[in-house]
Amino acid sequence: MTVPTEHLLILAGILFTIGVAGFFLRRNLIVVLMSIELMLNAANVTFIAGSRQHSTAGDLNLDGPIFAIFVIAVAAVEAAVGLALVIALFRRRQLVMLDQVNELSG
């Protein structure tokens, strides 16, 4: 496809902002974790756009896909730890709403 880099970056920006909106506005902890996944995906789209922009036929730029693979690995780790915390919290307090978890607030 011959889509210009700008349009990939705009897509990534919109996806990231939707993720930020979910992160700040939703109360359900699981949906907040999903919003983080959305933001990481937007970052991956940006890496792809950059890698595509900087490649020439003789000299391929592989930094984008490699960083995207690392981001996916970190996203998997983050989802696993986050969901383990959700389960631990639910086992202890029977809740998943973020603003009800206020033991540490002064």
């Binding site: 496809m1 011959t2 210009p4 880099t5 700008e6 970056l9 705009i10 920006g13 919109i14 990231f16 902002t17 930020v20 909106a21 700040f24 890698s51 595509r52 922009q53 490649s55 020439t56 036929a57 391929l60 730029n61 592989l62 896909p65």
Partner: peptide, 29 residues
């Protein structure tokens, strides 16, 4: 965050990216 998005979109639309190598655009890398 929406303000930052708008600022980013303005920045992206005001940047002129050089054209992508047609061989890369077709086959990827």
């Amino acid at each position: 965050s929406v303000a930052i998005l708008v600022a980013g979109l303005v920045a992206v639309l005001n940047t002129s990216f050089p054209a992508i190598d047609p061989a890369v655009a077709e086959t990827g890398n």
